[in-house]
Amino acid sequence: MATLTTESRPVRYALTAVALLFLFLFLLLPLIGVFWEALHKGWQLYLTALVEPEALSAIKLTLISAAIAVPLNLVFGVAAAWAIARFDFRGKSLLTTLIDLPFAVSPVVAGLMFILLFGANTVAGSWLQDHGLQVIFAVPGIVLATVFVTFPFVARELIPLMQSQGADEEQAAIVLGASGWQTFRKVTLPNIKWGLLYGVILTNARAMGEFGAVSVVSGHIRGETNTIPLHVEILYNEYNFVGAFACASLLALLALITLLVKSLVEWRLHRQQQASTLRTAEARLQAAQP
């Protein structure tokens, strides 16, 4: 293989070593630490920490809020990215800025915003309470906060992608007689699927891992309004390290699984392309021999 740089060998090794050391210290070591803390008193204690009712309830709530936030932000993100990348309209730059708002605002402030909006002393909050729906210190508030903080991921991932791909392929599909839905399903979606998958992975990771905003609106009612991150904090503050790290390891495991899925899908795609390249090469050879 050709050398891509002109740096001397010791310099290259030194740079690589620095990068690897950094990765080890700041990513790998903490990760190992989490699993070690969780498991070092034995498998039995680890499992017990996960199946106790409060932990199960936290896991359930985390899954519920992710299951609502991810599809919602998937649909919103695709719609917003399509609108921004494909059309010119009044207020486009405002929308682009608004999408970034959840990134710009501290999660704690985001949580407080919902308390100000839907708290028991507010007009909207008391009206909803009268109609039997409690938002703050209940599941709806947690879902709202989660949706808010994970709002930008899909759109942010897709907008530059769709802008760089341009609208030519979609226009070609429409000229060929495809309906709007067919164009989206057969042309737009396959072109953005990697960006979309990546956006969904990030959304999901953040939805399950969000602490600040959810902490403000949750009220920390054990077994009712605790998500995994909140549960971890409570256990940790109670010096229940095995329990805290067991639950934390679940979140870490989630990160590892999403990475694994992503690599797996990429690997499969790469294999497909290789196979096609091979077939094309064979076809070229055959065409060359009359």
Partner: peptide, 14 residues
């Protein structure tokens, strides 16, 4: 109508 685009606009995933 048939339309041929300057930059082909072939569906890259097909």
């Amino acid at each position: 109508v048939g339309f041929v685009f300057q930059h082909y606009a072939l569906f890259r995933h097909m």
